[in-house]
Amino acid sequence: MPRLELVAQLKGHNDRVWQVAWSPNGNMLATCSGDKTVRIWANTSHSDTSKWDCVDVLDGAHKRTIRSVAWAPNGKELATASFDSTTGVWEYEERDKEWECVATLEGHENETKSVAWSANGSLLATCSRDKSVWIWEVEADNDFECLSVLQEHSQDVKMVAWHPHEEVLASASYDDTIKIWREDDDDWYCSDTLQGHTSTIWAIDFDKTGEQIVSASDDTTMRFWKQYKPNNPEGVATPGNAPKWKNICTISGQHERCIYSVSWSKVHGRVASASGDNHIKVFTEESSAQAVNAPTWNISASVSDAHGVSDINSVSWFPTEKHSDWLASGGDDGLVNIWRYIDDDV
């Protein structure tokens, strides 16, 4: 059976690690923490994959926990969402060889929980405990204009995620729903609400095509949702001529506590989950042409006590083919772990 093998353990944060995020080319890993910093890590040895160094520490911009960190598609900017209700935008200065906070976005009334860049880097999305999602336009000279404040969630919004190719946004909330947001004539609107989870949805991720979403919840389940476009062959109704999302698979009984994070590999298609039960699990889809509307996902690897007795807050697959079997994780123990997915049968 495949397994997850610990490659490296990165120490430096002195509070819980909330999120781990690979740079677009995978050369660096950004991690954010309750210690109000972001650390940038790099594998500094060409021959030893276990040798990692902290090459930068981003601090001084936030007064409280940094809950989320996201790379811009160009790999030269970072965004940070903080419990101080602001979002920081950082830029790497080639001349000085350091990161500088070049913008601070204000407007949310409470903790900012998540931040994400659109696929082409022209838009930034943030969400907050104030129940709102904000969409910002990236302008010249590090200016950001708020295009829309979306307020259809009835509770704390936990996460935002952009479609990998289109300007379509998904948001997950304490109100047990996922909302899909689209733009029409400069006006952003909710085109669909995904219902099925019975408790807080902590995390969402698109597959590489953008046609499916995986969600993770406090109800200890993971759900897979598929997009059905107008005039689809399955006959799924699409009110308002906008795509309709349907739950096509639910995984239950694999985690004993809240699932805090999911990552859908854009390379090999496996899904990793991280939970308050101290487990990281990897799921693989059974290949079957007949199961396109009712897929079967099986557990292919699992590691218990992945961060000791601590909750695991984030998992993220390596983004490119080079090390597509690498998985990063961050936990309440303040540690960042790099794992390798090993399948001896391949």
Rank of each mutant, 00 (worst) to 15 (best):
V292E: 00
G308T: 04
S310F: 13
S265R: 07
G308V: 02
P295R: 10
N278K: 13
I280L: 11
K281D: 05
S261D: 08
S275T: 13
V267E: 02
S302L: 06
G276P: 10
S288K: 03
S304R: 13
S287K: 09
T296R: 10
I312Y: 00
V315Q: 04
T284S: 09
D311S: 13
N298C: 06
S314H: 02
A272L: 06
H268I: 00
S275N: 09
N293P: 02
S304V: 05
V267A: 02
A274L: 09
Y260L: 15
A301R: 05
V262T: 05
H307G: 12
S265A: 12
Q290C: 05
D305L: 10
S265K: 07
W297I: 01
V282R: 04
N293G: 01
S310L: 13
S265W: 06
S261V: 07
W297P: 11
N298G: 03
E256A: 15
E256Q: 13
N293Q: 09
E256H: 13
S316V: 03
A291Q: 14
S304Q: 08
V262G: 02
R257T: 07
S261C: 11
V267T: 13
N313V: 04
D311H: 10
N313E: 05
F283M: 11
A289K: 07
V271A: 01
A291I: 01
S263D: 10
D311V: 15
S304L: 07
H268S: 04
S316L: 07
W264S: 13
I280Q: 10
I259E: 12
D277M: 11
S287V: 12
S310K: 04
W264G: 02
K266A: 11
V267Y: 02
I259W: 08
D277F: 08
R270W: 06
E286N: 07
Y260Q: 14
V267L: 06
W297K: 00
I299S: 03
V315L: 04
S275P: 12
G269Y: 04
T296H: 05
G276T: 07
I259T: 01
S287L: 09
